[in-house]
């Protein structure tokens, strides 16, 4: 199994790079699980953010593996800035929905169907 994972990022054997890859994927899965299984608007936004932070981890890993870490770091800073904007927009929409319905329950959103 370790061999198989090593071939994913083209690295021989088992090392901390593989560990980071596994942690990154686990965090993405945790974020996706959070989006699917919670029924609270803010929790969904938190899930989105967890998944996105995991992606920044993977990009740093990519920079480490190919030796171009400076470029990877500048990518990650850009991603963090953009993510904050997305999170702010999402929170703004969630607050507006809270004002309409009086709760953050996602099951209120049933106006659009079919």
């Amino acid at each position: 199994m370790w061999f198989c994972l090593g071939s994913v990022i083209n690295l021989p054997g088992f090392g901390w790079e593989i560990m980071m890859l596994i942690i990154g994927f686990l965090l993405i899965i945790a974020g996706a699980y959070c989006i699917i299984r919670t029924y609270h608007l803010l929790k969904i936004i938190i899930g989105m953010e967890i998944a996105m932070k995991a992606v920044t981890l993977l990009i740093i890993l990519a920079g480490l593996v190919n030796g171009n870490l400076a470029l990877a770091q500048s990518f990650v800073i850009t991603i963090i800035v953009i993510e904050v904007v997305v999170a702010v927009v999402a929170a703004g929409i969630a607050v507006s929905l809270y004002k309409k319905y009086g709760s953050m329950e996602i099951r209120n959103l049933r106006k659009l169907k079919g």
Partner: peptide, 8 residues
């Protein structure tokens, strides 16, 4: 990230 990892 995967493309970047392999190509730089």
């Amino acid at each position: 990230a995967f493309v970047f990892m392999q190509t730089g």
